[in-house]
């Protein structure tokens, strides 16, 4: 019997399970390397040469170069890892959320101050499908 991935129908959400962990391993290991200052310097000096050290897929590599934050998650990245790449670029968690949601920093921050995103209409994929959200 297969595993029941009952979390796959939560909209706008990736649950970082072992399958995603496997897919994203090289990408995530690259991201976490940027936690250390000497690595941040080396990456800043020559992104391409630094990325060559990690055997990630072409798509993952391109998503890093493009700083395509959602694509990074779609390809097996996890937010705690990709946030290290964001931190390298001077982007904090809240600014990153503004980018990933497509809301922009100000609208996102205003939503949080107003109490955050309500769970109403945001629990199941079919609720987003009906609203025409991706």
């Amino acid at each position: 019997m297969g595993l029941n991935k009952d979390y796959e129908d939560i909209p706008g959400t990736f649950v970082f399970d072992a399958d995603r962990g496997r897919e994203g391993y090289q990408l995530n290991q690259f991201c976490i390397s940027l936690r250390k200052a000497p690595n941040r310097e080396a990456f800043g000096a020559d992104e391409g040469a630094y990325l060559d050290k990690y055997k990630m897929t072409e798509e993952q590599r391109q998503a890093v170069i493009d700083r395509d934050w959602n694509q990074l998650l779609e390809l097996g990245g996890n937010i705690y890892y990709t946030s290290k790449l964001a931190a390298n670029d001077g982007i904090n968690f809240q600014q990153l959320a503004g980018l990933m949601t497509g809301m922009g920093n100000e609208a996102y921050r205003a939503m949080m101050i107003a109490g955050g995103r309500s769970p109403e209409g945001n629990r199941y994929q079919h609720e987003w499908d009906e609203k025409g959200e991706e």
Partner: peptide, 17 residues
């Protein structure tokens, strides 16, 4: 407590829960 940091549903808060 409630929080989602990632992807398009980021910002979820559920005070009741």
């Amino acid at each position: 407590m409630s929080h989602q940091l990632q992807y398009k549903r980021a910002g979820l808060i559920n005070k009741e829960w």
